[in-house]
Design a protein around this nucleic acid. Structure first.
Length: 482
RNA sequence: CGGGGCGUAGCGCAGCCUGGUAGCGCACAUCGUUCGGGACGAUGGGGUCGGAGGUUCGAAUCCUCUCGCCCCGACCA
C-alpha cells in the first residue's frame, strides 16, 4: 500500500483543499448533471444527524412537519413581484410531460412560499386557525451559474419552515425564535460560532420585509451564511389571499414567515474546522465519534482473539453509553493507513489496542485535535472517551471562536476596511445606502454580511465609506463571502 | 456568457509535436513475506483513446465539426 497523495494545504490554496477533501473524505461524488452532486453515505450521515437534532428543536418550538409537491405552476411565481424577480433566473422548468407539451409549464421548486401560500389561503379562515406552524424537509433546485459541493449546488437538501400568524409582533417573534434555534444548533451541535444579525435591504430574501441570518467564519477568513429566517409581512398573504376573520369578525391578512437551513451547513463544518490532515468533525454530529483500530499481527490467532474480545467489550460498553463507535477491523490494511484515513475523515477520537495493551490492561487514545496519544487504563477507558467527546466539542468551539476573534477587527477608515476584509471580518459603521454597498463590493469584493443583533453601538460614528450617519443600532460586519 | 485548462483502464497521468494498432503509478485479484503511523515481492485481470466526419496503406497521434467536464470571474441558501 502506497501513500495516497496528500491534500493541498489550506495555506497554499484553500479552495483546492476544500475541493479535494470533499471527495477524499467520501462526502460527495459528481453526478451526471452539472452541479448536481451525489451525497455519499459518510456525508449523508452528517446530514441525518443535522436533521435529527434540528427536527427535535422544531418540534420543541411547536412545529409540525408536512410535505408539499415539488412541481409548482409557473403562474404562482408571477404573483409576488419581488419574488419572481429574485427567482426567475434560477428556475428549472418542466415543459413536457407524458410525451406532450404542458399547457402551463411547471417550475421545480426553488423554495415553496408560493405553493404553500396557495394552500394556506385555503386552510386559514379564522384567527382560531392561527398560528400555522409547519415545516418540510425536502430538496430544491436552483439553476446556479457556478457550483461548489455543499456550498452552492443545483439541487440541495434543506428544511423550509413556513408559518402564518395573526399579527406582526407574533410573526416577528417567530422569525427571531427560529434564528435562535439555528444559532443554538450551529454552536451547540456544530461547534461553529455564529454572528446573529439582520441582512441589509440588498441582501434580503426576495419578497421579505426582513431577513435574519447566522454568519460563520471559515478558516480562510471568509463568511458563510448558514441559516436564514424571514419576516414576509403580508406580501405573500396579499399575493395568495391568505386572509382570516379576526376576533372582531373583520377580515385581515395573515403575517407569514419562512426560515431555512440547508446542506450548505456541511460545507461550514468542513471549512470552519478542517485542517491540512482533513476533516475535523464536531462529536455531536460526527457519523463515528470513536473509531477503534485493533492492532497486532494477522497471523497471531491467539493474540487476535484476545484483542477482538477486548474490542468487542469496549465497543459494546460505548454503544450502551450512547456513543457512535466504529470498529475498523478491515484486513489487508496497515494501521498507519487506517490512522490517516480516519484522520482525513475527521473522527474525533481513536482507540488503538493490540495484544501488548491487553496484557498491560491499557489502550492508546488519540484525539484528532491533539498531537500526542494518551495511555488509558481499560477500566477508565469508557469514562475517558465519553468525557473526551464532551471536551472535544468545547475545544473545537473555542478554537473556532478564537480564530474568528483573531481575524476580526473594528475599522475606522475605508482603507482599513479594504485591508481587513482580505484576512477576515471588518466591523465598521455603515450608512445603509445600497449604492455605497454596491461600490464597496465592486472595489473590495466584500459585502455587509449582517447588522449584528448584538454588537458595537454606532454612537456618534459615521459611515466608513460615505461619512454619512448610520441608521443601524450596531456597526456592521463586512467580509468576503461564499 | 467572458477567460483558462482537460477528455486515453476504477482513479491520477504519459504517449500526440515527428502517424505503424496503447503504456506507467495507484487501486483490484491470487500467493508469499510483513504487521504499534500511509509495507514489499511475484503473478494476473481490466481500455471500441469523449463523439462524428475527413486525410492516409495505416490515426490516440494530422485536419474539420461537435459534445461534455473542471477551474477562475459576473447571480445565489
Amino acid at each position: 500500500m502506497a501513500k495516497q497523495q496528500a491534500l493541498t494545504s489550506q495555506t497554499e490554496d484553500f479552495s483546492a483543499w476544500y475541493n479535494e477533501l470533499v471527495y477524499k473524505a467520501d462526502l460527495v461524488d459528481l453526478g451526471p448533471v452539472r452541479g448536481a452532486f451525489v451525497i455519499r453515505p459518510y456525508g449523508y450521515a452528517l446530514w441525518e444527524h443535522v436533521q435529527r437534532e434540528l427536527d427535535a428543536m422544531f418540534k420543541a418550538t411547536g412545529h409540525e412537519n408536512l410535505s408539499f409537491p415539488m412541481l409548482i405552476p409557473m403562474s404562482y411565481f408571477q404573483r409576488e413581484a419581488k419574488h419572481v424577480e429574485g427567482f426567475s433566473p434560477e428556475l428549472a422548468v418542466v415543459t413536457h410531460a407524458g410525451g406532450v407539451p404542458l399547457e402551463e409549464p411547471l417550475a421545480i421548486r426553488p423554495t415553496s412560499e408560493t405553493i404553500i401560500g396557495e394552500l394556506y389561503a385555503k386552510w386559514i379562515q379564522s384567527y382560531r386557525d392561527l398560528p400555522l406552524l409547519y415545516n418540510q424537509w425536502c430538496n430544491v433546485v436552483r439553476w446556479e451559474l457556478r457550483t461548489r459541493p455543499f456550498l452552492r449546488t443545483t439541487e440541495f437538501l434543506w428544511q423550509e419552515g413556513h408559518t402564518a400568524h395573526a399579527d406582526e409582533a407574533e410573526a416577528r417573534a417567530e422569525v427571531r425564535t427560529m434564528l435562535d434555534v439555528y444559532g443554538t444548533f450551529a454552536e451547540e451541535f456544530g461547534a461553529v460560532p455564529v454572528i446573529r444579525g439582520e441582512k441589509t435591504v440588498g441582501e434580503r430574501f426576495a419578497g421579505a420585509e426582513q431577513t435574519l441570518t447566522i454568519e460563520a467564519m471559515m478558516r480562510d477568513g471568509k463568511a458563510l451564511q448558514t441559516g436564514t429566517s424571514h419576516y414576509l409581512g403580508t406580501n405573500f398573504s396579499k399575493a395568495f389571499d391568505i386572509t382570516f376573520n379576526d376576533r372582531n369578525n373583520e377580515q385581515a391578512y395573515a403575517h407569514t414567515t419562512s426560515w431555512g437551513f440547508s446542506t450548505r451547513f456541511i460545507g461550514a463544518l468542513i471549512m470552519a474546522h478542517g485542517d491540512d490532515a482533513g476533516l475535523v468533525l464536531p462529536p455531536r454530529l460526527a457519523p463515528h465519534q470513536v473509531v477503534i483500530v485493533p492492532m497486532g499481527r494477522s497471523d497471531d490467532d491467539e493474540g487476535r482473539a484476545r484483542v477482538t474480545a477486548e474490542v468487542t467489550r469496549i465497543a459494546t460498553g460505548l454503544r450502551a453509553a450512547g456513543v457512535r463507535v466504529k470498529v475498523d477491523d478491515r484486513d489487508g490494511m496497515s494501521p498507519g493507513w487506517k490512522f490517516n484515513e480516519w484522520e482525513r475523515k475527521g473522527v474525533p477520537l481513536r482507540v488503538e489496542i493490540g495484544p501488548r495493551d491487553v496484557d498491560a490492561g491499557t489502550a492508546l487514545v488519540k484525539d484528532r485535535l491533539e498531537a500526542d496519544k494518551a495511555t488509558v487504563a481499560l477500566p477508565e477507558l469508557l469514562a475517558h472517551l465519553v468525557e473526551g467527546l464532551e471536551a472535544f466539542h468545547h475545544k473545537l468551539f473555542e478554537r473556532a471562536r478564537a480564530f474568528r476573534e483573531k481575524h476580526t477587527r473594528e475599522v475606522f477608515t475605508y482603507d482599513e476596511l479594504k485591508e481587513q476584509v482580505e484576512v477576515g471580518f471588518a466591523i465598521a459603521t455603515h450608512c445603509g445606502d445600497p449604492a455605497s454597498e454596491a461600490t464597496i463590493q465592486a472595489e473590495t469584493k466584500a459585502t455587509v454580511r449582517c447588522i449584528p443583533l448584538e454588537g458595537i453601538p454606532v454612537g456618534e460614528s459615521r459611515c466608513v465609506h460615505t461619512g454619512e450617519p448610520s441608521p443601524y443600532a450596531h456597526k456592521v460586519v463586512f467580509a468576503k463571502a461564499y
